[in-house]
């Protein structure tokens, strides 16, 4: 049996001082697997990604999340990241005046430091990043710009994937990575995900639509509705959703 990456048990979570959104969610992901979570608006998809990554506006009220043998619930967001959990944001933030390359190196070295590994100097890091850039079909002037500042929607998503490739996490949570992408950008993003994917890591894609799944084929598809996973299956389930809609499946 392959290595377990994450095990979510009976997870209940809400917005701090707000409504309960996740109402007993169970999900186990092993290394080498690609999972897709689909669901209608308001089903709790984005909440799940925020809970996993440690957003301060959300809180876990019950249940457990085991991430690589660690209790995720007690970890700060940066510690989760350094332990190998990466979330690609649906709406990546713009940070004025912060050089993209310097930011990438800082993030990379945070992880290296956390793991007790050697930090990369600027020259080593340049080599590391060149290779990733070509994979995404990105020009190097991309690195000279400020972090996401003035980036187009597609550029922002590509930048998320670039960060993912640089940080090489154990588990990637892609929160609607396909939203707002044209076909070319979607292809580049998918190429990045496929290049990252290996037997030692796992992907959790959160999406509304089937179209991303044409490029990145999931091993498992789950339907989230009313804060719970109501149905699981293989990639054919996504096609069913496309045809029948969520209402029928969730019923």
């Amino acid at each position: 049996m392959s290595e377990q990456i994450i095990d979510i048990k009976e997870l209940k979570a809400d917005i701090v001082d707000g409504d309960q959104i996740l109402k007993g969610l169970n999900l186990k992901i092993n290394a080498g697997e690609i999972h897709a979570i689909m669901g209608p608006n308001g089903s709790g998809k984005s909440t799940l990604s925020k809970i996993l990554s440690g957003h301060p506006a959300y809180e876990i009220t019950d249940g457990a999340i085991d991430f690589q043998g660690k209790d995720l619930v007690d970890m700060e967001a940066d510690e989760r990241a350094n332990s190998g959990l990466f979330m690609a944001f649906q709406y990546p933030l713009e940070i004025a005046g912060v050089n993209n390359l310097e930011f990438l190196r800082m993030a990379y070295n945070s992880k290296q430091k956390y793991l007790g590994l050697e930090e990369a100097d600027p020259l080593d890091f340049d080599d590391l990043i060149e290779e990733k850039l070509s994979l995404l079909n990105m020009k190097s002037d991309f690195l000279d710009r400020n972090l996401n500042e003035g980036f187009s929607g597609g550029e922002k998503k590509k930048n998320e994937i670039l960060q993912m490739l640089v940080l090489n996490p154990k588990l990637v949570v892609l929160d609607e990575i396909d939203s707002g992408l044209d076909v070319d950008a979607l292809r580049a993003v998918a190429a990045g995900i496929n290049a990252y994917k290996s037997e030692g890591n796992a992907v959790l894609m959160i999406t509304h639509y089937q179209r991303l799944l044409d490029y990145v084929k999931p091993d498992f598809v789950h339907i989230l509705s009313g804060g719970k996973i109501v149905k699981s299956g293989d990639s054919s389930l996504a096609l069913e959703v496309e045809k029948e809609g969520y209402d029928l499946l969730a019923a």
Partner: peptide, 17 residues
């Protein structure tokens, strides 16, 4: 913004940095 901080934290950078 809290969102900017969270974004950076999610990349492994601690709050102060």
């Amino acid at each position: 913004s809290e969102e900017q901080l969270f974004y950076l934290q999610q990349r492994g950078i601690n709050v102060e940095d």
